[in-house]
Structure formats: structure tokens, C-alpha cells
């Protein structure tokens, strides 16, 4: 008898549709769907996906509690030997959903596994759930499927799981005792010599990175403050003159809203390819609230709405790029005498 596996995927991998279908509620299907067939093929009958749960990424993000309850109910009814979610690659909401359903199922005592790209926001849960490290796009399925299938099979069989670097999952912060051939002093000196010679070396104890920035002081008097708007929601002048990419943006845009009372459909749109654009295109103030800030400026509630805004597309955009964009335009905001910023995200 083969092991029973339940698989969780999103609307895209179930072939329901892209962003325009991201709102779909969870659905239970028999057998393997999409990437599940690749996993099944790897297991060669030793394990089999008996049910596939499909859920829209926006549905999960906006109804997390209900979605999780539904997934749990179906998993409980099926009593599988294993649960797999994804892989989600660099799809942010999908990765977040995969990590969270996997954690919920794990709490039932069922072993779980998911997979995603290291910069996916869902990868933040890597110390709570086992996450296979994948490439940043679905083109990485060919490598991800065998890694995930192999690791899942080891877990199902109760075999010993090797270190994260050997098995391909993200470091979960669990240390295991082992014997090294070389003594510590020699390893340290070898590392130092490599470092001095600009040769690669691998630390045995990476320092934790706590990249947190402490909050700045609050604005004292709004009626004298200049407030700037920024967004990762991709709002741009109609026609996207600077060609900001719909995903993996390589740059940001700086646009004037001097004299603009409200954003309208004729003049503005979104360049973002990671959410259904119809609502933002019909009324761009739904993402960048120029209209109400203008009203507040007129009423004297705020001193001024800054006459430029900064925008990019936060869809699969590398963290390093986003950091670089904002570090650059933040200096411009400071130089222009802006007092505080409202950042909107979709």
C-alpha cells in the first residue's frame, strides 16, 4: 500500500486562472493536479496524491482563518500520511499561504513540507516548517519536484533527515551534533587563509541578521507637515512611460501630481502584474489616495501633499532592488523637505 498524500496548490497551478481568479475559495479535487503529477511521478507508486486542495491566493490572504479551517477539515477527513504545499517559487501570497497551511496541518501531527524561493515572504516561517529552497520562478519546477519528492519520501519512511544543505531545505535553526575530521583551530585558520586570499569559504556559524530600523519620532503638527505618497502597487501615468516591469521591477518611477486633484482612469493606471488590475485602473485612488489627501490639504488637516510620488511594482521584485530604490528616493524626499510618508501596498 502506498502512502497517502494531500497536496495544496493555488488557482494558477490548478489551471483555473491568474490574478483575475485569485479570489476563488478553496476547492477539493480527487487525485493529483498540475505540479502534483510531477511529485507522483517521482514517487513511482510508493506514495500518491489522493486529494488536491486548490485555493485562490487573494482568497487565502483575505480570509486566512476560513481558508485554514476548510483545509484542516478536508485534511482531517482524509487522514493522509503526508501533506505538501506548493512549491510557491517567488509568488508572495502563495508562499505565505503554503507556509501557513503547512503549519496548521503540522499541528494535527501530520508531517508536512513546502517549497519556495528564499526571498518569498512565506520563507520567514522556515524555522516553524520545513521549506525546500527553490528557484524564483516556476521554471525551477524541474529541480524542485525531485528534491521535494525525495525529502518527503524520507520523512514518510521515517528515515534520518540530513542537514539542510544536503537535503535542500532552508536552515530551520536546529543544531545537530556531528564529528568533524579536522579540529576547530585548523578549520578556523583555513577559513581565515581563504578569506585573506579572497577565496570562497563557508562559515560554520552564520551571525543572525536583525535588520530592523527603529521607528522615527511621530509627526508633531500635521497641519504644518508635508506628506508624501509612495507605493509598491505600480500606479503610473497612463501608458507606463518609464516601462516599469509588471514583475521583477528593475527601477522605480518619480511622477508629479502637482495640481492633480484626484487620479483618474484617463491619466493613470497600474503596471503591476501581480493582482487583478481592473479596480486600480478604474479608480487609481484605490491604491494611491491622492483624492482624499488633496481634500485634507484644502481643509488644512495636513500642511501639504508632496507634489511628487514614488512608485514601483512589488511583484517578485528582489529585496535588494526594492532596498536600493527606496534608499535612493528616500534621500530625495528628505532633500525636498518631506516630513512623513504613506506607503501603500497591494
Amino acid at each position: 500500500m502506498s502512502y497517502k498524500v494531500v497536496h495544496y496548490i493555488n488557482q494558477f497551478f490548478a489551471n483555473i486562472g491568474g490574478e483575475e481568479m485569485a479570489h476563488v475559495a478553496p476547492e477539493l479535487r480527487d487525485g493529483a493536479v498540475g505540479p502534483g503529477t510531477a511529485l507522483n511521478a517521482q514517487w513511482k507508486g510508493e506514495a500518491e496524491i489522493v486529494k488536491t486542495i486548490v485555493c485562490g491566493d487573494s482568497y487565502f490572504a483575505e480570509h486566512e482563518k476560513e481558508a485554514k479551517e476548510q483545509v484542516i477539515a478536508w485534511v482531517k477527513a482524509e487522514k493522509p500520511d503526508f501533506f505538501i504545499a506548493g512549491p510557491a517559487f517567488n509568488a508572495g501570497r502563495y508562499g505565505y499561504a503554503c507556509a501557513n497551511v503547512a503549519i496548521a496541518v503540522q499541528e494535527l501531527g501530520i508531517p508536512v513540507l513546502t517549497g519556495m524561493y528564499v526571498e518569498n515572504p512565506g520563507a520567514d516561517y522556515k524555522d516553524k516548517v520545513m521549506i525546500v529552497s527553490t528557484r524564483d520562478s516556476a521554471a525551477g519546477m524541474r529541480q524542485a519536484a525531485p528534491t521535494m519528492a525525495k525529502l518527503a519520501m524520507k520523512i514518510m519512511k521515517g528515515e534520518k533527515i540530513g542537514a539542510s544543505v544536503e537535503e535542500g531545505y532552508m536552515n530551520m535553526g536546529v543544531r545537530v551534533n556531528m564529528f568533524e575530521e579536522e579540529r576547530g583551530a585548523k578549520r578556523a585558520v583555513d577559513m581565515l587563509i581563504n578569506k585573506l586570499n579572497d577565496k570562497p569559504f563557508v562559515t560554520e556559524y552564520p551571525m543572525p541578521s536583525f535588520d530592523r530600523v527603529a521607528p522615527n519620532k511621530a509627526v508633531k503638527d500635521l497641519s504644518k507637515a508635508t506628506i508624501a505618497l509612495c507605493t509598491s502597487g505600480g500606479i503610473v501615468p497612463k501608458g507606463n512611460p518609464d516601462h516599469i516591469e509588471s514583475s521583477s521591477a528593475s527601477h522605480y518611477g518619480e511622477y508629479s501630481i502637482a495640481g492633480v486633484q484626484a487620479l483618474d482612469e484617463a491619466g493613470w493606471e497600474t503596471a503591476h502584474g501581480g493582482y487583478d488590475p481592473i479596480y486600480a485602473n478604474a479608480n487609481p485612488n484605490r491604491v494611491l489616495p491622492v483624492d482624499v489627501l488633496r481634500d485634507m490639504e484644502k481643509e488644512g488637516l495636513i500642511g501639504k501633499l508632496h507634489d511628487k510620488f514614488y512608485t514601483t511594482v512589488g511583484n517578485g521584485t528582489a529585496v535588494a532592488s526594492a532596498k536600493k530604490f527606496a534608499a535612493e528616493y528616500a534621500q530625495k524626499l528628505v532633500a525636498d523637505g518631506v516630513d512623513a510618508v504613506i506607503m501603500t501596498s497591494t
Partner: peptide
């Protein structure tokens, strides 16, 4: 991006729907 704006010395508020993601990116006012 919010973190870089904060680092530059400006208070910033992040308006977003998936607040756990905002927490992981390090926004201070959400």
C-alpha cells in the same frame, strides 16, 4: 522599502492588506 524610508529619518506608515507580510518586511507603523 518602508525600512529604507525609516532609515533615512522619515516616519512612514505602511497601508496594506496582508499585515503579516508588512511585519516581516519591518514596517513600524501599519
Amino acid at each position: 522599502m518602508v525600512k529604507e524610508i525609516e532609515r533615512a529619518g522619515l516616519p512612514v506608515v505602511h497601508m496594506c492588506t496582508v499585515t503579516p507580510i508588512s511585519m516581516t518586511v519591518g514596517a513600524n507603523r501599519i
